[in-house]
Write a protein that binds this DNA or RNA. Structure first.
Lengths: 165, 165
DNA sequence: CTACGGTCGATGACATGTCAACAAACCAAC
DNA sequence: GTTGGTTTGTTGACATGTCATCGACCGTAG
């Protein structure tokens, strides 16, 4: 019974624009990051999140949650980064299962020298192309969408197959 | 000389929000697509672009350009989709190097039955959460960014290592 | 204490994406 | 028409991401 509500012209423009921007921005930022700093975007994200903590150390699961990565993916990626000397793993004192990811001096060096260029690229290709009002709107709108997606309770009305108490 | 212009609070909010939305939206859309239609996002994109042409056929390179994929990636992906009977390859009449990607009946069937659910998901998780003004703003802003990135000429002032010519 | 269900992180098998190299075919200049 | 440089699509090697599974460990209920 449901005649699909397709996207009208404006909605379509927004959706296509979003996807295209997503792709192009990614390619360009990754390209510059590799060229200028020898890091991939995932590398940078790991290092960046780590460096935001005072000690440069985070529980693996905590880091995974922040990054919205699976523990498995993070574990694999850390192994590679460990090979390159960017991070180390230490045992967790209060939970013997746990593992703590630690930024090495080389790792900190790597983010710190990559960061200015990366921020500049983000500005050049995105932020500085927007009006202040657009920046605010983008912040507002993305957070609204994120809050919905992050909270399974709010995840809203999708035709349910069946009710369960 | 260049004290890095870090992102201020609002800019940071927008940038983080964007990346978080990007990730969560992707996960959720991919999840629903797989569950409801047995297709990955890349699968859907290929089929969708093909189905937008009258004949459901496109030159491989043309398709790759539209999708912003490398020919290599597309070629690999098509081989897998071909295995599953979603597309076929045909020889190109006017260019013997060329290869034409053709939507099979099963392929068309797959997109057509996946599309309504997918559009609904896009609405539920993004479009319908925005005001009409926000939809317009998003369309406007993304296209501005895309135009810059797509046109190497406009790609603007990055500190050049040296002048040529 | 110990038994049990859950969490943590690592791992291997596999799916997917990237990159460089290649053969074939095109095309423009001679 | 032949040469030389370019474009096209495929391929294999490799990097990365996903998924299921596992052993180790945690916490709690009995």
């Amino acid at each position: 019974m449901d005649a699909t509500r397709w996207l009208d012209e404006r909605e379509d423009r927004a959706w296509r624009g979003y996807r295209r921007m997503r792709r192009l921005l990614d390619l360009e930022l990754a390209r510059e990051l590799t060229q200028d700093a020898g890091l991939s975007e995932p590398d940078y994200d790991v290092l960046s999140d780590l460096s935001e903590t005072p000690e440069g150390r985070l529980r693996l699961s905590e880091l995974a949650d922040r990054m919205l990565w699976s523990r498995s993916r993070l574990s694999h990626h850390l192994s590679r980064m460990q090979q390159r000397g960017l991070v180390t793993r230490e045992e967790c004192a209060d939970d013997a299962r746990g593992s703590i990811v630690v930024l090495t001096p080389a790792g900190r060096q790597a983010v710190e020298s990559a960061a200015p260029g990366h921020v500049a690229a983000v500005r050049r290709h995105l932020i500085d192309l927007l009006t202040p009002a657009e920046v605010d709107a983008l912040g507002e709108l993305t957070h609204r969408v994120v809050d919905r997606l992050a909270d399974p309770g709010l995840r809203a009305t999708r035709p349910q197959p069946a009710a369960e108490v």
